[in-house]
Design a protein around this nucleic acid. Structure first.
Lengths: 188, 188
DNA sequence: CACGATCTAGGACAGTTGTCCTACGAGGCG
DNA sequence: CGCCTCGTAGGACAACTGTCCTAGATCGTG
């Protein structure tokens, strides 16, 4: 197999496993088994577990950027775009119920471990934060745009943690409705 | 040393370490070092790591019940009590910035691990949820009291995750203010 | 075909994990 | 005093961790 393709497979498998089980609880052996490679051979592709994490975060950053661009092309209005973000807790509802928010749980874990790459992982949040801030600025709330962006982020994280804990879809739906109402007061 | 006192010391140390580093990332050796005991000797007090976790959760449940009773005696009005809960993200602001919410991070970790004791840990959330629901019922919002209770819980978790990630105290303050405004619309 | 680069399997490695056992010491009670 | 329970130290145990090495397979290119 080509090295680049294998590397991509490793990153894909690691991404999924880190999300489902957490970073620390995922071992080289787990990733190797998922890809179908021998454990020792990993050193050829990644010189350490941290290097895999780095690649996973990089892949998530790229994926998120791509998703945000899609949202921008699909939703012409800033409030439609913000709503698109808000509804992600419904769109990805099943995954969030089972595994939590991929961004939130990774950041929480790395922050608690005092991991070197927490700064990188925080970049995932920053991506959403900056994008949301831009949408609120376009709505004419430039001076408090960052505050509003953080509020929407906090909403998503609160819903994700409780959805993950209680596995209650109705709760998620009610919170999204509440958020929709709140958003409408900021619409042009 | 008396066995009961040693047991209490172990639970205290484990409680702190589980909060600061996470359950999985805390080893018997870590707890032993914190208490000043030999690692092998732990089996005398707890027959497994899960047994320690069980005792820690039990201790947190008892502590939480005690705190809620204190709040009830200190705050005569239901809205004052809810506000007391809301402001916990400021009261424990330093800890939350460094280690996240002790209830939220434990539940997230155990849910992701598929751990047997996740049900027990969820009880910590349920304690707050039921208590908040009671306060909203006393405020005359019986039919949507649980919904409102979950909303307040979601607020606390969203703020905790972002505070832990960004370490921004001003953000916490703004969210608490926002919550105060929201609460005032539900006051008698 | 032969060569060199690329990719792989398998295992060695030192360290750590949770678990469990045995032997010892301290202290109260007969 | 001798006994017996309670608490402890120290280490054995197998399994697993991330890391690293070496020998061989595969494959495109000269």
């Amino acid at each position: 197999m080509s090295g680049a393709a294998t590397r991509e497979q490793i990153v894909d498998a690691a991404d999924r496993l880190f999300y489902h089980r957490g970073y620390e609880h995922t071992s080289f052996a787990d990733i190797a088994a998922a890809v179908g490679l021998s454990r020792g051979n990993f050193y050829y592709h990644f010189k350490s577990k941290d290097a895999i994490l780095d690649a996973v975060i990089e892949a998530r950053l790229a994926g998120t950027r791509h998703m945000l661009e899609q949202w921008e092309s699909q939703q012409p209005t800033p409030d439609g775009r913000i709503l698109q973000f808000v509804e992600i807790v419904l769109t990805n509802g099943t995954d969030i119920q089972q595994y939590g928010c991929p961004v939130g749980t990774l950041n929480t874990e790395l922050a608690k471990l005092g991991h070197t790459l927490h700064g990188q992982a925080r970049g995932l949040f920053t991506l959403f934060r900056d994008w949301l801030r831009e949408q609120f600025t376009l709505l004419g709330h430039g001076e408090q745009a960052d505050d509003l962006a953080m509020h929407v982020l906090a909403f998503s994280q609160g819903v994700a943690v409780l959805s993950h804990t209680f596995r209650d879809e109705e709760f998620v739906r009610r919170e999204v409705d509440r958020m929709r109402d709140w958003l409408s007061t900021y619409r042009k």
